[in-house]
Lab assay of single mutants.
Amino acid sequence: DVEPGKFYKGVVTRIEKYGAFINLNEQVRGLLRPRDMISLRLENLNVGDEIIVQAIDVRPEKREIDFKYIP
């Protein structure tokens, strides 16, 4: 289970104008929005990159997770 405030290693699987989709595993995916990136820009991410993200909002009923990147 993903818990708000905890850090997780994930893989960038898709990049859109509104953010990057990060997979923690095959069943768990969330969104990293540009506003939640500190010292990292969306255009510097590539599909396949491994990054450490912090879960900031977890909505299991909608199967949605918002992430934050903190270097």
Rank of each mutant, 00 (worst) to 15 (best):
D1P: 14
D1M: 15
D1H: 15
D1R: 15
V2H: 04
V2N: 02
V2W: 06
E3G: 06
E3M: 15
E3N: 09
P4R: 14
P4Y: 10
P4L: 15
P4G: 07
G5D: 06
G5Y: 09
G5A: 05
G5P: 03
K6F: 09
K6T: 08
F7Q: 06
F7D: 05
F7R: 08
F7E: 05
F7T: 07
F7H: 06
Y8A: 01
Y8N: 00
Y8G: 00
K9P: 06
K9E: 05
G10M: 04
G10F: 04
G10T: 02
G10H: 00
G10N: 00
V11L: 11
V11S: 07
V11I: 14
V11Q: 09
V11G: 02
V12R: 00
V12F: 01
T13S: 13
T13L: 05
T13V: 11
R14W: 08
R14I: 07
R14C: 06
R14P: 00
R14D: 04
R14H: 09
R14L: 09
I15W: 03
I15C: 03
I15M: 07
I15D: 00
I15R: 03
E16F: 12
E16M: 14
E16D: 08
E16R: 10
K17Y: 14
K17R: 14
K17W: 15
K17C: 09
K17T: 13
Y18N: 05
Y18E: 07
Y18Q: 06
Y18K: 05
G19L: 03
G19A: 07
G19P: 00
A20G: 02
A20W: 03
A20H: 01
A20I: 06
F21C: 05
F21H: 07
F21Y: 14
I22W: 02
I22C: 01
N23T: 12
N23I: 07
L24T: 03
L24V: 09
N25Y: 07
N25W: 12
E26H: 15
E26F: 14
E26M: 13
E26R: 15
Q27F: 15
Q27R: 15
Q27H: 15
Q27L: 14
Q27K: 15
Q27C: 11
Q27V: 13
V28N: 07
V28K: 05
V28D: 08
R29D: 06
R29F: 12
R29T: 12
G30H: 02
G30E: 01
G30Q: 01
G30S: 01
G30C: 04
G30W: 03
L31F: 08
L31W: 05
L31M: 08
L32C: 02
L32G: 01
L32D: 01
L32V: 03
R33N: 03
R33Q: 05
R33V: 04
R33K: 08
P34R: 12
P34K: 14
P34L: 11
P34G: 10
P34A: 12
R35F: 07
R35G: 10
D36Q: 07
D36M: 07
D36Y: 08
D36I: 02
M37W: 02
M37K: 02
M37E: 02
M37V: 04
I38N: 12
I38G: 15
I38T: 12
S39F: 11
S39M: 13
S39L: 12
S39H: 14
S39I: 10
S39G: 15
L40A: 08
L40F: 06
L40E: 05
L40G: 06
R41N: 11
R41P: 06
R41C: 09
L42N: 03
L42H: 04
L42E: 02
E43A: 13
N44D: 15
N44H: 15
N44S: 13
N44K: 09
L45F: 05
L45S: 01
L45R: 01
L45P: 01
L45E: 00
L45A: 01
N46V: 13
N46L: 14
N46S: 15
N46P: 01
V47S: 04
V47A: 05
V47T: 06
V47W: 06
V47I: 14
V47Y: 06
V47E: 07
G48S: 05
G48C: 06
G48D: 05
G48T: 03
D49V: 05
D49P: 01
D49H: 05
D49I: 06
E50L: 15
E50W: 15
E50A: 14
E50G: 12
E50C: 13
I51L: 13
I52K: 06
I52E: 07
I52C: 11
I52G: 03
I52T: 12
I52W: 13
V53L: 04
V53D: 00
Q54E: 07
Q54G: 05
Q54N: 04
Q54L: 15
A55M: 05
A55W: 03
A55Y: 03
I56Q: 07
I56S: 08
I56P: 01
I56D: 04
I56E: 03
I56Y: 14
V58Q: 05
V58Y: 10
V58R: 05
R59S: 06
R59F: 05
R59N: 09
R59T: 05
R59V: 05
P60Y: 10
P60I: 11
P60V: 12
P60L: 11
P60A: 13
P60W: 12
E61D: 14
E61W: 07
E61S: 13
E61A: 12
E61N: 13
E61T: 11
K62Y: 09
K62I: 10
K62Q: 12
K62C: 08
K62M: 12
K62G: 07
R63Q: 13
I65P: 02
D66T: 10
D66L: 12
D66P: 02
D66E: 06
D66G: 07
F67V: 04
F67K: 02
F67E: 01
F67R: 01
F67H: 02
K68E: 05
K68L: 10
K68V: 08
K68N: 05
Y69N: 05
Y69S: 03
Y69T: 03
Y69M: 05
Y69H: 06
Y69G: 03
Y69C: 03
Y69D: 03
I70R: 08
P71A: 10
P71W: 06
P71F: 06
P71V: 07
